[in-house]
Write a protein that binds this DNA or RNA. Structure first.
Lengths: 271, 271
DNA sequence: TTGCTCCTCACGTCACGTGAGGTGGC
DNA sequence: TTGCTCCTCACGTCACGTGAGGTGGC
């Protein structure tokens, strides 16, 4: 018979753990002194303790260990649990490796630029959304080409939507595509709505859901290029690939354009 | 201004998380209605939320995120934190990969043998221990050779130790080495003691600490070979290498040898 | 009036670590 | 008598999830 201290030493666990395993019924001492509550363990109980430790090392919770040890689980069930664990562990490895890649990308940025990046890219799911939209044509992607086209589009769109008495269901959205001849840019100005038709030559479109690397741009859209460049530069070193057309979400558009807040959304897929 | 629900939707976090970040002061809403406590967030606060999420994704705790965002941490300090995180994440990856290897070794055993392994190997640290010991010579490692040598050694040893009035400080230990000519086996019978000398031709030896793959053998030492084989078979597929001489720890030695409990300790090193 | 959204507690999670306060045998 | 080991509560951990119970605007 071992005292709890000796048994803990041989088993390389803490006394507290043995008390805990006693409390939850996972490993009861072979004997308990009724006078003072002292626990005594038999040498053979080290085998049980080892089973507990081994299963814990596989990453099972104590409740699962309990089930495996006491509830006469079948080989098939055990195999199922192990396969599930294998999948969970593979996911743990993958996600830790991904975080590690993030950290290393950050460290590289700091080493090369000498300061913390001022922006933070977050990858997230963007839901599908129904919008009312107007489309125009610009000669290029730069702000000088886009601004004179998109501003009247939004003015016209919001007037029409307001006139139709349709409530706007969220921040305005812009997105851009190259035209078929590749010479010009299709500029889309859109606002979320909950109706199926709004008339007046305004299209109702279902924008698809997607995964996006996003970055919050603060300031005028005339100065959006560095933010887009930072977003693009983030994508590859962090293990993603760009796919498709970016969107802009106008989160806050006060009168002073220098105070605008825009979310840039670049569709990505894990590379 | 966004309600908490809208802000949560755009930020892809739960409402509960925003309330929690408010409670701990990590992200306070831009405005709170004093009448009903409703929280309102500015679009620009999405930038702060993104910083929180990005740092959380690097694996920092919220307290660390707090420090990084608010306490004007220097680039050097941040780099230090990132390097520490990198090391922690590397360790996470390694340990998850190790667990994964354990799980896969188990699955292979189950697939090939059709049942759960009946023994559980645990790798643990064995402390250095001072022992009183007697040494004999046997013709080989098999139980038939060892038993007739070791039994009288232990009888003689325990008699001498008892006669000397020295208390035995733990379970008896046996270990074996090949003799120099390689033709025979040195058999060591030892018991832990706390004294520096015991006279009577009994050696006091400091057995070194080591890392061991261990397995609890139940039953007579005449039947120990399958347990040793199971222990040896475990080592390589689980990423270890054997190093040095195994030990036996006699945890429980009642009169009936069939009820003996022994821990087999095989020194290992990560391979 | 019915939903919907918002609010504030407050418990539960998981496997123990860490005191606090006290007892029994050498 | 002094250490040492043992005991039983019971709080704390971390980042929220999940009710319970209630309120205010469309």
């Amino acid at each position: 018979m071992f005292t709890i201290g000796d048994f803990a030493r041989h088993g390389r666990v803490s006394i507290r753990m043995l008390r805990h395993y006693d409390a939850i019924g996972l490993l009861r001492p072979a004997q308990v002194d009724p006078a003072n509550g002292y626990r005594f363990y038999a040498g053979a109980q080290l085998a049980r303790l080892n089973r507990v430790i081994a299963l814990k090392d596989l990453g099972f919770t104590l409740a699962q260990v309990q089930t495996i040890l006491d509830e006469q689980i079948s080989v098939g069930e055990l195999r199922g649990m192990l396969r599930l664990r294998r999948a969970e562990l593979a996911e743990t490895v993958a996600s830790a490796a991904r975080r590690l890649a993030y950290v290393e990308a950050r460290l590289r940025t700091i080493e090369s630029e000498g300061h913390m990046p001022g922006h933070d890219v977050v990858v997230k799911h963007i839901d599908a959304v129904r919008v009312a939209e107007l489309t125009g044509i610009a000669a290029g992607y730069s702000p000088e080409h886009i601004a004179p086209v998109i501003q009247p589009l939004f003015a016209q769109l919001s007037k029409h939507v307001a006139d139709a008495g349709v409530p706007i269901a969220g921040p305005a959205i812009a997105y851009y595509e190259s035209s078929e001849d590749g010479e010009s840019v299709l500029v889309h100005a859109a606002v979320p709505v909950a109706v199926a038709d709004i008339g007046d030559g305004i299209a109702i479109v279902e924008l698809p859901a997607f995964e996006a690397a996003t970055l919050v741009h603060r300031g005028s859209m005339d100065e959006v290029m560095p933010s887009y460049q930072a977003l693009s530069a983030w994508i590859e070193p962090n293990g993603y690939r760009s796919t498709g057309v970016p969107r802009e979400l106008y989160l806050d558009t006060p009168d002073d354009p220098a105070l605008w807040v825009t979310e840039l959304q670049e569709p990505v897929t894990p590379a």
